[in-house]
């Protein structure tokens, strides 16, 4: 989840600290246990969850699908069934197709960069050359971007990337650039600036997960490789990467899903502009609904987004099963 930028998935729960001594009393007889299970107790415990999921997930999805086949929904009375007309409208809208293309560029570039940066930083933090303290300090600095909410990240980068901001100052004085660039308003650069911000915001979660994966690789594998005469580069490609492969692939698929759901960052930096160059599926759908009040076409777009996410989620589940 992102928006929960901290939408990034959380760590596993810690193991319980207090280990309780096993009790010596006899377990209840099988019949009693079966009676308890049949008595519906588990459904009692699950009922609040099931009601919430029904109201907050099942009903809304049914609603949005039914909206997408109708006209005049939410803001007007007397909605009529229009078949796939809303889908035709959306799929032939050049703005939607641009949003689809932009989303594709945004999520693939972000994910690849997250992987490369996360892996690079994790490898450096995993070195045996530096003391534990030094590494702990660097680790906290590296996690910093992950700790700020998207609204704050948007404000920080609007300050940094302002035409008279500090990034342009550094690039013109040190980088030899001739004049300042309006990063977020220049149609040729806005998508790349936005992707850069997203890369900054998202790499720490990759780094933490990959670091955990690195620490799980047995030292014996490296020893065996070095006995066989493999240098650090061969060890990286023949031991580290194959061992990390499952972590890297599932992180990448999760990141594609999360990044495709990013809304707040885009909305608060470029708003989809200039000239639609940073319009994404999420901002397109939002504008259809809450700026144009075209809730029916917005619903069709929302269902398309849901279907695309389901394709990615399907791959994720398949990968998890292979592990």
């Amino acid at each position: 989840m992102n928006s929960a930028k901290l939408d990034h998935a959380p760590p596993a729960p810690p193991a319980p600290v207090a280990v309780v001594a096993p009790q010596t009393r006899a377990a209840p007889p099988g019949r009693a246990r079966r009676f308890l299970a049949k008595s519906g107790a588990p459904f009692g415990y699950l009922s609040p969850t099931m009601i919430l999921i029904f109201v907050l997930m099942i009903i809304p999805i049914v609603m949005v699908i039914s909206y997408s086949f109708k006209d005049n929904v939410i803001v007007q009375q007397n909605s009529v069934f229009v078949g796939f007309a809303n889908y035709t409208t959306v799929l032939t809208d050049p703005d939607f197709l641009a949003a689809l293309k932009n989303t594709f560029v945004f999520i693939t570039v972000s994910t690849v960069a997250h992987l490369v940066l996360g892996l690079g930083f994790a490898l450096m933090l995993n070195t045996s050359l530096l003391s534990g303290w030094t590494k702990a300090i660097f680790r906290i600095i590296y996690i910093l971007p992950w700790l700020f909410t998207v609204a704050v990240i948007a404000v920080i980068w609007r300050l940094m990337l302002d035409p008279s901001g500090v990034v342009n100052y550094l690039l013109t004085t040190l980088g030899g650039m001739q004049e300042g660039v309006n990063w977020l308003s220049d149609p040729g650069k806005a998508l790349w600036a936005l992707t850069f911000i997203n890369i900054w915001a998202g790499f720490p979660f990759f780094m933490i997960s990959i670091l955990a994966g690195l620490q799980g690789i047995s030292g014996d594998l490296y020893e065996a490789a070095s006995v066989d005469g493999a240098g650090p580069v061969r060890q990286f490609w023949n031991v580290t990467i194959p061992q990390l492969r499952p972590v890297l692939i599932s992180m990448a698929v999760l990141d594609l899903i999360w990044t495709s759901q990013q809304f707040a960052l885009i909305w608060m930096t470029t708003g989809g502009g200039p000239l639609n160059v940073t319009e994404m599926l999420s901002t397109y759908t939002y504008k259809q609904a809450f700026s144009s009040y075209e809730f029916a076409t917005a619903s069709a777009a929302a269902v398309i987004v849901l279907l695309l996410t389901m394709v990615l989620a399907f791959f994720y589940v398949r990968l998890q099963k292979e592990r």
């Binding site: 989840m1 999921i53 999805i61 609904a289 809730f295 849901l306 996410t309 989620a313």
Partner: peptide, 20 residues
Amino acid sequence: VIISVQAVPPITLVIPYFGL
């Protein structure tokens, strides 16, 4: 179902939520 709920995009939910 509980696990798959996590993958549903917020932007898909926000339209029916508004109505609800």
